[in-house]
Simulated scan of single mutants.
Amino acid sequence: MIAAVIDLGTNTFHLVIAKITADGIQVIYKTNLPVKLGEGRINDNIIIPEAYARGLQALQGFNREIEKYQVDVVKAIATSAIRSAANGSNFVNSAKSDAGIDIEVITGDKEAEYIFKGVKATGAIKGTCLIMDIGGGSTEFIICNPDGLHWKKSYDIGAARLMQAYFHSDPISDKDQSAIRDHLDKELGTLKTACNTYRPTQLIGSAGAFETFAGMLDQQLDLNKISTADIDLQNYHTLSKNLIASTHAEREQMPDLISLRVDMIVIAAIITDYVLEASGINSISLSTYDLKMGVLQAISESETS
């Protein structure tokens, strides 16, 4: 069968089309568009008209690709920006009427489950791990080992939310950084408790910002050809320090840093630094598989069960 998964993220809409057989999942087409659905007023829980229009236009283009590939099953998954927006249900209705796409709005817990399925498929989970997926609207954390999932939680501390609320200087000031860390202190108490209980020894970053970190640290790395990679912790800390200290203009000139992440990568680095410090973890790796591959895994399991 041919399956398509659409991930309607806060910053980026993704489309993946794959052939699912008894032998596994073969991706035959993928694309993404920087829709920036959370632009401007994500913390007011509103999708502004410009972002709303970009989102529908992206879905119309995705639907043309879905028809071209004669897809059998389509799963369109909406996460933080749409589930928290006052006009999110309007967007879901417009997607159906204007683009022919049925959207499923999932909870943060369900999002974490799909992320776990995606990361697990890479084989990256060796011991007790903390998986982190930094989105634009929310960030998901999963504690797991090769046998299964122990704990999961989604927090509304996505990079776009924190950037709009706290990133008011260029480069980001010590005051802004402190405000972010204070906010993380208030929000992530249950994560710290879970880390103290389960003692994860490895942080696995799911796609997104972690692909940027890995690509900037190793410019020979072909992210399209790998599912997982180790990230040298000392080199990461050097990169993080440089990103946080840099101006917007300086980051624009950095290789392997896409324009969509020029500012949000600073927030991602601050969150990652905080989590590494709070958890005491001293090993970090990348999973290029995330929610999208997790949804494909779930489709595959339902077909073969």
Rank of each mutant, 00 (worst) to 15 (best):
Val35Asp: 01
Thr107Ala: 02
His168Asn: 14
Ser227Gly: 12
Arg251Ile: 11
Ile157Arg: 02
Ser178His: 06
Leu296Ser: 01
Asn87Ile: 09
Ala229Gln: 12
Asp102Val: 14
Ala194Asp: 11
Ala229Asn: 06
Leu221Asp: 03
Lys186His: 06
Val73Phe: 15
Ile106Met: 00
Asn32Ile: 02
Ile231Pro: 00
Pro200Arg: 12
Gly280Asn: 00
Asp263Pro: 02
Ala86Asn: 02
Gln164Ile: 14
Ile66Glu: 02
Leu296Ala: 05
Met163His: 14
Phe62Asn: 04
Gln57Phe: 08
Leu223Asn: 07
Ser279Gln: 10
Leu233Met: 14
Gln57Ala: 13
Ile281Gln: 06
Ser80Trp: 03
Leu217Pro: 12
Gln297Gly: 01
Lys75Leu: 03
Ala159Gln: 01
Lys153Tyr: 03
Thr107Gln: 07
Ala209His: 12
Asn224Ala: 15
Ile143Ser: 06
Leu33Gln: 15
Ala165Cys: 02
Asn11Lys: 11
Phe210Thr: 12
Leu221Lys: 03
Thr31Gly: 10
Gly205Lys: 15
Met216His: 01
Glu113Lys: 06
Val262Lys: 15
Val5Cys: 00
Ile265Val: 14
Gly118Arg: 06
Phe213Tyr: 12
Leu162Pro: 10
Ile142Leu: 04
Ile28Asn: 03
Ser279Asp: 01
Asn90Gly: 07
Asp273Trp: 04
Thr197Pro: 05
Ile258His: 10
Asp147Val: 10
Val35Thr: 15
Lys117Ile: 03
Met264Thr: 11
Ala3Gln: 01
Met254Gln: 12
Ala18Ile: 10
His168Ala: 09
Asn90Trp: 03
Met254Thr: 12
Gln220Lys: 14
Ser302Cys: 05
His14Gln: 01
Asp102Asn: 15
Ile125Val: 02
Cys144Met: 14
Gln57Leu: 15
Asp98His: 15
Ser279Ala: 13
Ala278Cys: 14
Ile204Val: 01
Ile172Asn: 04
Lys19Tyr: 10
Ala58Phe: 04
Lys192Leu: 13
Asn282Tyr: 10
Ser279Glu: 06
Gln253Glu: 13
Ile157Met: 00
Phe141Cys: 09
Ile226Lys: 01
Asn90Asp: 15
Thr122Gln: 08
Ser246Leu: 08
Ala214His: 05
Gly38Ala: 14
Gln60Glu: 09
Ile134His: 04
Leu296Arg: 09
Pro34Trp: 00
Asn45Ile: 12
Ala76Thr: 13
Asp232Gly: 02
Ser154Asn: 03
Ala165Asp: 06
Ala85Arg: 05
Ser178Lys: 14
Ile28Asp: 05
Ala3Asn: 05
Tyr155Gly: 00
Phe62Ser: 03
Thr193Cys: 09
Gln26Gly: 01
Glu187Arg: 09
Leu191Ser: 09
Ile157Asp: 02
Phe141Gln: 03
Asn11Met: 10
Leu59Ser: 02
Lys30Gly: 11
Gln70Met: 05
Gly208Lys: 01
Val262Ile: 15
Gly136Trp: 04
Leu56Asp: 00
Asp290Tyr: 04
Glu140Met: 10
Ile42Leu: 14
Arg54Ser: 09
Lys68Thr: 13
Pro146Trp: 05
Ala160Thr: 15
Asn196Arg: 07
Ile143Thr: 10
Asp102Arg: 07
Gln253Pro: 01
Ile106Gly: 08
Leu239Glu: 01
Lys225Glu: 10
Ala86Gly: 04
Thr128Gln: 03
Asp230Val: 10
Gln70Asn: 07
Ser285Cys: 09
Gly88Cys: 05
Leu233Val: 08
Phe116Asp: 04
Leu162Trp: 07
Leu239Cys: 03
